[in-house]
């Protein structure tokens, strides 16, 4: 509800230029999380850079693996024949979350950068949240926290990352390719997100060397977020315990994923993968 400027660049370089020109700009793709956060007053960007015109919507084979553009919708990725056949875990993980309407809008890049649904983070009328206001404390630590992390948390933050998809991508040992003002680089998916530690406000390793992610020169555009290695996908299945079904977590879709679970690599190993990342989602809400 605060005034902001809006720009809609056509190229990645234009997007980066716009990003560097206005401090604390935000890229917007599907907007399924950012708009909520703006309405709540959690995010207050002075500029929105709409990246939906950028040519980042392809899913293509590369070196026997798969390269997925940052602007591919969650729905398109989950239903893509190559992903369904070679990386079913990714398809299952995407379909295990949100709703069809949200998945239609949500992008693969945005899914990585969505922010925690911790109650105390999401509502700025709670004074304490180290992620929102560094140094303010953690209201969840001794508050209502049954949906919070059981592994990987710190005294500063016990929030979990909300993405199902990211868990699958970590299991698949994917790679994130990014482009920033200083050029392009690749980040191993498992290294993309950070545990909260002492700086829960720094959620990813998009910046390095201790640079605050809000620094205007530290921004990166997710260009081709996922490079999936050859042959990694078939032995993983999506596995998720939660209070309720949500859209395809129940009914027919669910049955399929559960039976697939039995022929996967074994639940204990999958579980370890899940929980090893950012105190991730077990048990989790839908």
């Amino acid at each position: 509800m605060r005034p902001f400027t809006y720009t809609c660049p056509k190229t990645v370089d234009d997007a980066l230029r716009a990003y560097m020109q206005t401090s604390e700009s935000k890229f917007i793709g599907g907007g399924t999380n950012l708009l909520d956060l703006m309405k709540m007053g959690v995010e207050r960007p002075p500029q929105l850079i709409d990246i939906n015109k950028l040519p980042l919507t392809a899913i293509e084979e590369r070196n026997g693996g798969l390269r997925i553009g940052a602007l591919v919708s969650n729905t398109a990725a989950a239903n893509h024949p190559l992903i369904r056949t070679r990386y079913p875990v990714l398809s299952q993980a995407i379909l295990g979350g949100a709703s069809p309407q949200l998945r239609n809008m949500a992008t693969m890049g945005g899914n990585l950068l969505q922010r925690t649904r911790c109650y105390y983070f999401y509502d700025p009328s709670y004074a304490e949240c180290n992620k929102r206001v560094p140094g303010s404390g953690c209201a969840a630590l001794h508050g209502y926290n049954r949906i919070h992390a059981i592994l990987g948390q710190s005294e500063q933050c016990i929030a979990v990352h909300p993405s199902d998809m990211c868990v699958a991508l970590a299991a698949l040992d994917g790679e994130v390719q990014v482009k920033g003002p200083k050029g392009e680089r690749s980040i191993r998916f498992a290294d993309f997100h950070r545990l909260p530690g002492e700086t829960p406000q720094v959620e990813t390793n998009l910046t390095s060397g201790g640079i605050n992610y809000l620094d205007r020169f530290a921004g990166y555009l997710l260009r081709t977020p996922f490079l999936l290695p050859e042959g990694a996908g078939s032995s993983f299945v999506c596995f998720r315990a939660r209070f309720r079904g949500g859209d395809s977590g129940r009914g027919r879709g669910r049955k399929d994923s559960r039976s697939a679970n039995r022929i996967g690599r074994g639940r204990n190993e999958t579980l370890a993968r899940h929980t090893g990342r950012e105190g991730s989602c077990w048990p989790e809400t839908g």
Binding site: S99, R117, G245, G246
Partner: peptide, 29 residues
């Protein structure tokens, strides 16, 4: 199975005051 308005007893506030966190069944449930 689902519904509960969760209260933070220190603050006396409903923490799950939206339909993302206050669970009601959807058709698939």
């Amino acid at each position: 199975l689902y519904e509960e308005a969760a209260v933070d007893k220190r603050l006396g506030r409903w923490v799950n005051n939206n339909l993302a966190e206050y669970h009601v069944p959807v058709n698939a449930d």
